[in-house]
């Protein structure tokens, strides 16, 4: 005869056997603020510095050392005034230092949507979502950007626009570090396209398609 305690004890054991699984399931479904447990270290942490790692040897803790002021890395001497500063002969350049291609225009559009769109909006009239949010906060320090289609900006030479992106202007931040040189020129090209698009006349449309619009 199987004793009477056998069944309850068996059931309890089976239930207890499920507890570890329940614990693991909980771990899996919840977030943890702890790093994963490391039982065997292997070579997970090597005595080398990856990008943006911490190096206690320096006061600021950066393993990636900032450039020493006043020095130029090899091969990065920016001699070409036109390309790097948008100036020709001391004046704002009125033409592009490279050929404007449709590829460059596509690139400009993509970069514009990444970096300028938040503030300047899709068409460049200055009502990007960040700009709207900033105004709705009513702090009084936000100066909404001017529309690209105002005469002031339409009349600016491309070199000046390039400089605005690189170094910022008044409350507009500088994007020289975030955007590469070629990409900045591509954005300028796209701004020109935007300006053209918002101030277009029917004569800009190819004659064959004009009838469709009317």
């Amino acid at each position: 005869m199987i004793p009477r305690w056998f069944l309850p004890v068996g059931i309890i054991t089976l239930c207890l056997a499920l507890v570890p699984f329940a614990i693991v399931a909980k771990i899996r479904s919840t977030k943890s603020t702890e790093t994963r447990p490391q039982i065997i270290f292997d070579m997970d942490q090597q005595p080398k510095f990856k990008a943006q790692a911490v190096n206690g040897l320096f006061a600021d803790g950066r393993a990636m050392r900032p450039r020493v002021p006043g020095t130029i890395p090899r091969g990065e001497l920016q001699e070409d005034d036109h390309l790097y500063r948008g100036k020709t002969g001391g004046e704002w350049a009125t033409d592009f230092p490279m050929e404007v291609t449709s590829r460059m225009m596509q690139r400009g559009r993509e970069r514009y949507d990444i970096f300028c769109l938040p503030c300047h909006g899709y068409t460049g009239d200055g009502n990007g979502i960040v700009s709207q949010r900033a105004e709705s906060l009513r702090e009084g320090i936000w100066i909404p950007p001017l529309s690209y289609h105002s005469d002031v900006i339409r009349s600016k030479p491309v070199g000046n626009l390039f400089n605005t992106i690189s170094n910022g202007i008044r409350s507009m931040p500088a994007y020289g570090t975030q955007i590469g040189t070629e990409d900045r020129w591509a954005i300028v090209a796209y701004i020109r396209a935007l300006q053209r698009s918002q101030n277009a006349t029917i004569d800009d449309v190819p004659a064959a398609k004009q009838s469709k619009l009317r």
Binding site: A51, Q52, A134, L137, E139, I141, W142, I143, P173, T177
Partner: peptide
């Protein structure tokens, strides 16, 4: 898009906006 790492943005990037948004 250009490098192996997707750098965490430097403080300057935050300040692009926060120099004039929510400054307090």
């Amino acid at each position: 898009e250009n490098a192996a790492t997707a750098a965490i943005p430097p403080t300057e990037v935050c300040m692009n906006c926060h120099a004039s948004i929510l400054t307090e």
